[in-house]
Design a binder for these strands. Sequence first.
DNA 1: CTCCCGGTTT
DNA 2: AAACCGGGAG
Length: 349
Amino acid sequence: MTDTKRFFTDRILTWNRAHNDRNMPWKNEKNPYFIWLSEIILQQTRVEQGRPYYERFISAYPTVNDLAKAPEEEVFRLWQGLGYYARCKNMLAAARSISAAGKFPDTYEGIAALKGVGAYTAAAIASFAYNLPHAVLDGNVYRVLARYFGIDTPTDTTAGKKLFTALANDVLPENQAGIYNQAIMDFGAVVCKPQQPLCKTCALAPHCEAFQKGLTDLVPVKSKKLTIKKRYFHFLLLEQNGMVWIRKRTAKDIWQNLHEFPLVETPAPADLDALRQTAGFQQLVPPKTKALEPGVQLRQQLTHQTIHASFTRFSLSPDFSLPADYMLVPAGQLEKYAFPKIITDYLQR
DNA sequence: CTCCCGGTTT
DNA sequence: AAACCGGGAG
């Protein structure tokens, strides 16, 4: 262990004792079920967005057995709007396996075997709940380590993951894993931020490679560049005497397991006249059915696609029926189903 | 508006 | 290596 590494760990712990006033409802929590729940909710999610979901989940399901017993549709409805819906599916599967086992796993390997739990989440739960010496490696930790130690190896490569994992575990104080892991992530979120980090007042700056060499904005490095494609979704609100057609998305695509209105996707922007020419539209709407009003346009930005959505209402003749994967539900019952954000936005507008 | 951010699975 | 969401910042 080098001096600069010892200094690093010591200053992180000191900062945590003296200056860390970041407060989360799951901090100091020792119940592994609550810790696991909060970590699943916080994956890819900002604390302030996740917090209300966490409160609702622990209130609805105070124990892992309550969650394990819950119907999938109900859990998805509670998860609605949080994004990355595979997390919800995996969470429920994990809850059922924990409940069947009769206790929460208390080893790193046992925790890592849970669905939806990868290296980061396993280390977080192992250290927070059981103080096991496993270093967390999330976006905050990558950034703090890359800057302080001046590492420009891309973090999203096998070599990068290996290097950062070894370093993270090297600077982990063996007997304070839980406190330290929380501290380094808070430090990354509050001081060593992605944009405009607080280097001027940072107690680590004297030994920080990136700060000393003016490389703060150049690390961490990522190798992949994101290509974003545009998609054009035309949602059809097909109404039949107070009822409306919906279906569950089952394809290997975004929003799997959520519901939607009958959808026609076009490769390019299309107005209603152009839409009527498509086979998809003709399969869903009888000829000469008039739109009830001009369509509503909404947009949603995903990681690698931009969704341009239109919503158009039609009144369907009573005898018409859609393919078997669609279901006709009362318009007043839509809140029982989980929908993607762009659809709930439309419904609430 | 346009970017930017982030764990796990396949 | 690529796909998966939604919200915040500029």
